[in-house]
Design a protein around this nucleic acid. Sequence first.
DNA 1: CATCACTATGTCAGTTCAGACATAGTGGAG
DNA 2: CTCCACTATGTCTGAACTGACATAGTGATG
Lengths: 180, 180
Amino acid sequence: MTSTLGFAILAVLARGERTGYDIAANMRRPVGFFWTAGHSQIHTELQKLLAGGLVGYEAVHGPGPQDKKVYHLTADGTARLREWVTEPPRQRPERDELVLKTYAAWLAEAGLVRRMFAEQLAAHEARLAEYEREEAAFGGPPPFGDPMFGNYATLRCGLSYERHRAEWCRWMIDQLSDSL
Amino acid sequence: MTSTLGFAILAVLARGERTGYDIAANMRRPVGFFWTAGHSQIHTELQKLLAGGLVGYEAVHGPGPQDKKVYHLTADGTARLREWVTEPPRQRPERDELVLKTYAAWLAEAGLVRRMFAEQLAAHEARLAEYEREEAAFGGPPPFGDPMFGNYATLRCGLSYERHRAEWCRWMIDQLSDSL
DNA sequence: CATCACTATGTCAGTTCAGACATAGTGGAG
DNA sequence: CTCCACTATGTCTGAACTGACATAGTGATG
């Protein structure tokens, strides 16, 4: 019954107790590279997880009109997350606006298309440089069983993705230069 | 005002007139590799595009309770699509269930995680072989300006994506084998 | 002659989600 | 002392989307 967003929250909580606000911050970075949610959605989902007994919380006095709620995984939540991790992922439909534009690119002016791809390439190269710096900060992969293994493995995926994407952008730019 | 789905429909219609049914078939393949929609959504969107004057149709007698509607782009629709193509894509949040599972993989048994990645790898390799066959059928890239340029360029993206993904899966499997 | 797959259009109910709105305390900069 | 950024919780509206339901003709297979 739990949605993928619910598991994303459980995955964050598996690394330590957090408030909804903290989870939202994690959903921007680093989890935001592969799953995102606004805080409104997180608070709603947290209430569902609470009703399902997968998380619990302790109220602590803090800023704001309400008490601060520090959430943690229950035994059920941990078990459910562990189970979900190795279930085959149902892939959601791939939706990529740039590729859709590419599909219709033959209608437009080659120069404008080339400029768009040059901008995309620059963005990918910037992200690649950032990821490479982050990778250097790890000195090789952490052992499996360490939570940081997850961070490193997802970073490797991002690294590989940015390289593939940059390569494709370069290929597109080449194609568009030849046709001028 | 037009949604991305609207442009996906316009992009299909730019290649020739089609019924809603035909568009839905295109949304499974080849457009489905980068944008998908069910027929219910397509009929709804088609009505919006019609109200906006971006498409028109001719009713033809055919099977079913209603007449068959053959849609085509209007001059406005073509212009709007051409304009959209070179506007910088606003990237929607990347959502990838496999990477999310990877983030939490440290909780699970290495053997089960490895099996999941082996399955993913097999799927990627199968798709890669299929794409390579399709690429061979083109004998090199069609000229820019030809609608098939769009098909070829998106295929190249798919090819590159599957290679990156397969490579990452292999890396993951290596990591999990070392730790046993 | 019956059944089934395909062509073809549409509605409806429910879910997900993004973005705006609403509220309020703490701590630091100027 | 004022203002601002940050911490912190939540609601609500509307858009996007999924999957089921509903209807009906054509043509091929058995």
